[in-house]
């Protein structure tokens, strides 16, 4: 659990005029800061802009990009769009899961290092299959390349 800096949330709210209509943008800004939506932050926002917790939770969970749980340091997005699918991205995903020890039901590692997400299409179909680590795109992936990529990240973190 992170500690929420309410001064920072105030700044975000100010930037969006405390306007209910900007709730999605406000949550995007919060997520950019914490990489997920901490409950304390949303409760604060709900109070300040005058919407109910049910509404804010409803909006947050509707959209795929909002995470209600803390994410790992490396967010690995595996594209499962059509083009990537046709070029066997399922195998890449499997390799990523295997290398990180994660699964669809368990998206983040306990050590807070990795989160694996499945995304629909990243718009880089010409380079399929694509894997994105944080904001870095890795194109024309194979299971082997995926495994190597994760080993590299682990090595960088001093893991064996």
């Amino acid at each position: 659990m992170v500690k929420v800096d309410f001064k920072l949330i105030d700044k975000i709210l100010e930037r969006y005029d405390y306007d209910k209509g900007n709730i999605i943008a406000i949550m995007q800004a919060i997520q950019e800061e914490y990489r997920y939506l901490p409950q304390a932050a949303l409760e604060y926002v709900a109070e300040k802009i005058g919407v109910s917790m049910a509404k804010i939770f409803g909006v947050a969970t509707f959209y795929e990009n909002f995470s209600m749980d803390a994410k790992g340091k490396y967010v690995i997005k595996v594209c499962r769009g059509t083009a990537c699918h046709v070029r066997k991205s399922a195998n890449v995903l499997e390799a990523v899961y295997e290398a990180t020890g994660l699964s669809e039901g368990k998206p983040s590692t306990e050590d807070g290092l990795f989160t694996v997400e499945i995304v629909s299409c990243l718009g880089a179909c010409g380079l399929a299959p694509v894997v994105v680590v944080n904001d870095e795109v890795h194109s024309k992936m194979t299971p082997e390349k995926a495994q190597a990529l994760i080993s590299e990240l682990k090595a960088k973190e001093g893991m064996r």
Binding site: Q39, L42, A46, S52, M53, A54, K55, I56, F57, G58, T61, F62
Partner: peptide, 16 residues
């Protein structure tokens, strides 16, 4: 109360 999540996973509940 409001809808939470979407699609088949949708349910109605208070937030969180």
């Amino acid at each position: 109360i409001d809808f939470c999540h979407r699609g088949k996973r949708t349910y109605i509940a208070p937030g969180y």
